[in-house]
Computed example of a mutant assay.
Amino acid sequence: MQRLWPKWGLDIDGRRKIDLTDMFGNDKPVVLEIGFGMGEATAQMAATDPATNILAVDVHTPGQGNLLNLADRNSLSNIRVGNGDAIILLREMLRPDSLGGLRVYFPDPWPKKRHHKRRLIQPDFLTLAASRLKPGALLHCATDWEPYAEVMLEVLTAHPDFENTQPDGGFAPRPDFRPLTRFESQGLDKGHVVHDLLFHRVPHSAR
């Protein structure tokens, strides 16, 4: 962290707008990943798709350090690590239409009913996210908590700024670019069903 944070880290403080081209040193599309655990899947995706920059955000310090280490060890210059609240990043620090994609893999399902309001994938969040996504950008969610998956599908389907990539309007098969994570493998071993949701940001003219 001490060695690599000044080079590849971002403190999410809400005090300034970020120029993503300056941050990465190029104009490749930037995908925001919210919540990355220990970062193994993020590093794998960065390695297999060097034409895409990944801004990965989490609050878990050991995970941040591990992802920085993976990026450094594997010369993955297309990763930046953000520490803090992704909502503040989206609302205060990113410009409209600046993101080429958004990934939310295995967010906290907050299973108790009284905690459902803490879930990330809700209409207000989607409206905010849509304002920062370029038209046509891909929003990709994955969860192994089936009730949350159903809610995600319902909320995304109802949102005017997003359109399901699946002709049947349902869940998507896991795309090749999303690696199987350690967390996911553990869930599958327990008999959990993993659902992927792939939605495009609707072009402004189609809204």
Rank of each mutant, 00 (worst) to 15 (best):
D176Y: 07
G37N: 11
N78C: 11
L76T: 11
D189I: 08
L67V: 04
H192E: 10
V30L: 06
V194Y: 07
L126G: 12
L4N: 04
R118C: 10
V81A: 00
A46Q: 01
N164A: 03
G187K: 10
R207D: 04
D144Q: 05
G170Q: 06
P167G: 05
V31N: 00
D49Y: 07
D22S: 13
H204R: 13
A130H: 02
E92W: 11
D58F: 07
L90W: 08
T42F: 01
T165W: 03
S98V: 12
P123R: 12
K17S: 13
V57G: 06
D85P: 06
F199W: 09
A41E: 09
R207I: 13
V155T: 12
R182D: 14
L67I: 03
T48C: 11
G14K: 10
D22Q: 14
P167E: 12
L180H: 03
Q64Y: 00
L153F: 02
Q166S: 11
A142M: 13
K190L: 15
S205D: 09
A142E: 08
L70D: 05
M38I: 06
P160A: 03
D124Q: 15
E184Y: 13
I34G: 03
S75A: 15
Y148W: 12
L128Q: 11
P123I: 13
K112E: 14
I54P: 01
R207C: 07
V151M: 12
M93T: 13
N83Q: 09
Y148I: 06
T42K: 04
L138I: 13
G170W: 02
S131N: 13
A142W: 04
A51K: 14
A86D: 01
D144Y: 03
W8G: 01
R91M: 07
P167I: 01
G39C: 06
P123W: 14
H204V: 10
M23E: 02
P6N: 08
L4Q: 11
